[in-house]
C-alpha cells in the first residue's frame, strides 16, 4: 500500500504551537495510520509532540505530510483540515 503524500502550508498565525501539535498527535493516535511530517529532509512521527514542536514551524511554512496505513485517507482529511485552520484547535 502506497503512503499518501501531500504538501501543506501552516495557516495558524502562531505556527505549529502546543495545541496544534497536540491535535496532530491526537489524529495520529486516533486512526489506524502512521502520520509523518517531512520538513527540511527530516521525517518525524507526529505522535511525538516535542519532535513536532521543536521543528519550529511558523506561519506560512510549507511542509509535506506522509500517511501510511489502513485509514490513511481519513487521517489525511483531518490533517488537512487542521493545517487549513487559522484559529487554535
Amino acid at each position: 500500500m502506497k503512503p499518501l503524500e501531500k504538501e501543506l502550508t501552516v495557516n495558524n498565525p502562531n505556527g505549529v504551537h502546543g495545541r496544534v501539535a497536540s491535535h496532530l498527535a491526537r489524529i495520529a493516535g486516533t486512526y489506524d495510520a502512521t502520520v509523518h511530517l517531512v520538513y527540511e529532509k527530516t521525517a518525524i512521527d507526529c505522535t511525538a509532540i516535542l519532535d513536532v514542536l521543536s521543528m519550529g514551524l511558523v506561519y506560512g511554512t510549507r511542509l509535506k505530510i506522509r500517511i501510511g496505513g489502513r485509514e490513511r485517507e481519513k487521517a489525511m482529511a483531518e490533517v488537512e483540515k487542521l493545517f487549513s485552520r487559522r484559529d487554535d484547535p
Binding site: 491526537r26 511525538a48 509532540i49 519532535d51
Partner: peptide
C-alpha cells in the same frame, strides 16, 4: 498537550 508531553519519546 502536557499529557502528551509526558509520554513523549524525547
Amino acid at each position: 498537550s502536557h499529557i502528551l508531553m509526558i509520554h513523549d519519546r524525547m
